[in-house]
Design a protein around this nucleic acid. Sequence first.
DNA 1: CGCGAGGTTGACCTTTATCAAACTGTGTGG
DNA 2: CCACACAGTTTGATAAAGGTCAACCTCGCG
Lengths: 225, 225
Amino acid sequence: MLSQASRQNVLPHPALTRVGHEFPKPVKPVRPVRQLLNPGDEIMLDDHAAQLRRVVEGCVVLYQLLPDGRRQITDIIGPGGLFGCQQEDRYNIGARSLTYTKIDLIDASSAPGLASGAALEALQRLRHHAMLLGRMTAAERTASALLELAQAFARRSTSQSGRKVTFTLYLTRGDLADWLGLTIETVSRTLNQFKRNGLIEYRHTGIVTITRPEALAAIAAGECK
Amino acid sequence: MLSQASRQNVLPHPALTRVGHEFPKPVKPVRPVRQLLNPGDEIMLDDHAAQLRRVVEGCVVLYQLLPDGRRQITDIIGPGGLFGCQQEDRYNIGARSLTYTKIDLIDASSAPGLASGAALEALQRLRHHAMLLGRMTAAERTASALLELAQAFARRSTSQSGRKVTFTLYLTRGDLADWLGLTIETVSRTLNQFKRNGLIEYRHTGIVTITRPEALAAIAAGECK
DNA sequence: CGCGAGGTTGACCTTTATCAAACTGTGTGG
DNA sequence: CCACACAGTTTGATAAAGGTCAACCTCGCG
């Protein structure tokens, strides 16, 4: 499914070129094992040794599948985020990289509080997301999603003028749909409506600018009409 | 909001009558602090000392509110279940008892692994619930909910004939709706359709019998039509 | 007996899904 | 370099699931 070897040439991970620079210098603390992933790579969650993982760069999504193929993305992890399937899931859980991604493997035993702290944060995020999935409209979900993604993937804005935020949108419309419990078409329509109303800007999907964060926040909070 | 003192007379907790029996005998291990709650009681999640709680008897729901009052129930805790707001939530999180409920307060520091284990389990449950909210139909959600509740609140069946399960349904239609991301009316219609089709039985809401668990499971798994 | 909370049912309507077609941008091979 | 294939996106027409509104029922309780 993920002919990684064959694509390695086609899609060389940019960071691979730096490996030569990184390995020589000996570091005092335990060097974490680092994984380099290409877009679309499946991440094995074997959970040997209760591995915890930190996204150093890039974007990872966690998802679950229904027997008939329906997919629900349950979390999106950006730089600095922790994840890991800390116990046998009786549900079909998967993780996948959406771009060129660097991940550090962390030995959970070496950082006792880290894993449980990460679990609690994930729980909080997921509770909020349950609220979104169960009780918000398409516009509210989309606005909320944009603000969350901007938070996690914001680019250093060249001009700090205004409170505009620009971020890299690693998710396709399909990913957004599977995250927000909507269809591709509804996501596309909602996004374009936001664009037409001047709340956001984008030319090529992949880089989005939030031009009116307050307005988006108001929509996300259900204060529209 | 929860004039508990004034309702104490009106709705005396059945277990209160036994308090006299329980206090006298000295117990060797640390006696857990026990709370007795009436139906509808709000549970304070102050989180002083990172309290963890175990439901001994009864039913507790965790929920979140949107500014305009929309509610999403994010978890349902039955006997043996653990919960507790282990860290400041930036979202409005609440907990409420749905019946006469006994809760033990557990000092999290006395049971280090317990809290994180509970968090992980909650995370798993919630991931599944996110899938339910984002990707399942009303019938699938309702079937799934019935099976889950039967699991958590099953009564010792008098006759072990067949694989029927009878359980106490502590949730109102409104609670079910807020848990499943539906409306009261849709929950009512779906339940009655299940009843008409002979999948479940109930005379007075409050006690439900699942007469054809396999059929419900098939619906929950999306294998219908 | 009457009240109120919760439940059911029906008619109708809105939101969002579905289906279909066309468009865009990018990499591929002639 | 251009035609092509493709993956992803947009847009429109239509349909269905579920929401909304309203009436009525049921039961427990004062």
